[in-house]
């Protein structure tokens, strides 16, 4: 078998990070009534975390090709 590449490890790590970010208990930390600039923090958190995950995916999977 081919040895998994560093990229493969990074992708799997990113996947695990995603599983962590969009799951209990991390979600519960932001599941509060507070707002940031008028916008509920849960809503802000989800989209920011989502965006960061996508950006990392772009860097990890497409970077260096």
């Amino acid at each position: 078998m081919r040895k998994p590449s560093l990229r493969a490890y990074r992708i799997v790590s990113l996947f695990l990070l995603g599983c962590l970010l969009f799951n209990y208990p991390v979600l519960a930390l932001f599941n509060v009534g507070a707002t940031a600039a008028g916008v509920p923090v849960l809503y802000v958190y989800l989209f920011v975390a989502w965006g960061v995950t996508i950006a990392l995916a772009a860097v990890v999977i497409e970077g260096g090709t």
Binding site: A8, G18, C19, A57
Partner: peptide
């Protein structure tokens, strides 16, 4: 989004 990360595999 998560699945597409694993999509490469």
């Amino acid at each position: 989004t998560l699945m597409m990360l694993l999509g490469w595999f």
